[in-house]
Amino acid sequence: MTTTLDTPVLAGEEREARPRRRSPLDRERPAVRVAAWVTIIVFGGFALLPVYWMLATALTPDGKVFAYPPALFPADVTFEHFASLAGNSQLFDYLVNSAIVSGVTAVLSVIVSAYMAYSFSKYRYRGRRSLMYLVLSSQMFPQALLLVTLYAVFDAYDLLNTYTALVLSFTTFTLPLCVWMLKGFFDTIPDSLIEAARIDGASQLRIIHSVIVPLSVPGLVAAGLFAFVRGWNDFIFALTLAGPDKQTLPPGLANTYLGEAQTAWPELMAASLVVSLPVVIAFIALQRFLVGGITAGAVKG
């Protein structure tokens, strides 16, 4: 914020005439600017082409989906595949299940991993490093191996086909990365802040909740988003551990549109686009936290 008291208030045309602030890119030489834009377009195209292809397929009539040579822009456009979604109430059930499971996974992962990460970051005790590695080592197992074991464990506790089974299994996989991500974040918070709070008489829980957590919001959001996306995208655990009533979107979409001899690609693309919207909106809203949260702790002086 650089506003000073003696800056005159501009009105109307004067305000419009004021030159806009130049971005760092504008100040570069033309060749550098061109290179930067080419890079943005190439990488942007690389990232967005699949999304565009989904949209184009969703808008293409059935008989023309496999037209050869494939057309980048559909010659005929139909909205029937989007309209057909309205008649499929099961998709909404899948969406609700996904939101519940991913949301609870995100919250649970953040809560548990925040306490673990705080302990790893701010305390020194025997076995700390071994515990940290043990947490990380759970990332090294092939998920298929854990699936069989988790299936037996959840079966023994009668948890199959419940939200609990999905949340617990997703949290198992999100915790290691969340813990390490948050540990890196907490490492950047000066110990002097904690000392000061302690001198002021704050209890350990008070320090965590009133000092550490408010300073760590970007990290917590980033970890939460990571856990949410992990839960949202999972296919094999959701398919295996959840029955038809608790099934989430990825297996739900596969169940609905993938057949033995045929895949309803346009309908599948339309459904995938529509159900992606909530996550896209959440990302746009929270992306400033995401970038800050993930990179925090990456560079330390």
Binding site: S130, S137, F141, L145
Partner: peptide
């Protein structure tokens, strides 16, 4: 440290496999 790390992972895998 790396050997400890792998040992812990191996132990975990063996434990999980035993549960199957």
């Amino acid at each position: 440290r790396m050997l400890q790390f792998l040992g812990a992972a191996g132990l975990g895998a063996a434990g999980l496999a035993a549960c199957a």
